[in-house]
Amino acid sequence: MNPVRAGASHKAFSLDRIAAIASNTLTELTRLKVFYVLLLFACVLIGSSVLMARLSFQQEFQVLKDISLGAMSIFTSLLAIVATARMLPQDTEDRIVYTILAKPVPRFEYLLGKLLGVLLLLAISTLIMSALFLALLYSREHAALAATNRQMAGLPQEQLHAALQSIRDSTFNPDLLPGISVIFLKACLLASLTIFISTFATSQIFTVVVTVFVYFIGHLQGTAREFWLQGHSAGWLARTFLAVVALLFPDLQLFNLADEVVAGAAIPLAIFLKTAALGAFYTVIYLLFATAIFSAKEL
């Protein structure tokens, strides 16, 4: 018997435990072939955007950004769903969940650790893709600047400066980073949603199908709601109904700031913050839902 440990008090919440689960989950996910396949695919798509962009003479940078951000958005969303959907069923099947929960680990921490593991994976892939994208953009910008310098060598300084400045403006605008962050946040939201669904799903396929379903509804629901509100006067019943729908099917269209980024338009800070807060809110809410169901679950 060990008298020292016998009286040790249990910590209700421990970052060490969560970190251990998260890093273990990240290791597990990086062993997945599908991760590399998807990542490779996304990178190839981003790389090929350079070629496609050069075919469209005038709007080269627009096309490049459009394709790259689109690829990032689809890849991170897909990865969030696919990687998360298999986590809980896999752990249950391998009985790893028994060994983890037989330690003094609250179920909330287990889910949070798992989710953080996925979010880390998403963050890493977002970083890799952004690095590639920004490097391509940078090299194309340099090429364009050099070409302009050559072509307009004889023209007055002011005209040349203006031309160069317009190229700079259409490549690196400060809204690229908020745009990319929002793509990442959307993926976080989807990962959290997937964990929630997988706590009551009977199979991995079910989880993926339902999440993809929610994904599409989420993209359409903003339009549907506007249409609905136009036709009806919104009583409290209708409002409650809409609130529930909004909770279950987040308006994913709000996370499509990329279009504005591509167009070079500025994302107002207020809009960015609002979208970020919304993403964080849904991520937390779904995690809480997941905990509520998982805590009562028979393992």
């Binding site: 040790a8 209700a12 609250p106």
Partner: peptide
């Protein structure tokens, strides 16, 4: 959860 502080389990 605290009841599992002093327990080891082999499934």
């Amino acid at each position: 959860v605290a009841s599992r502080e002093a327990v080891g389990f082999l499934p």
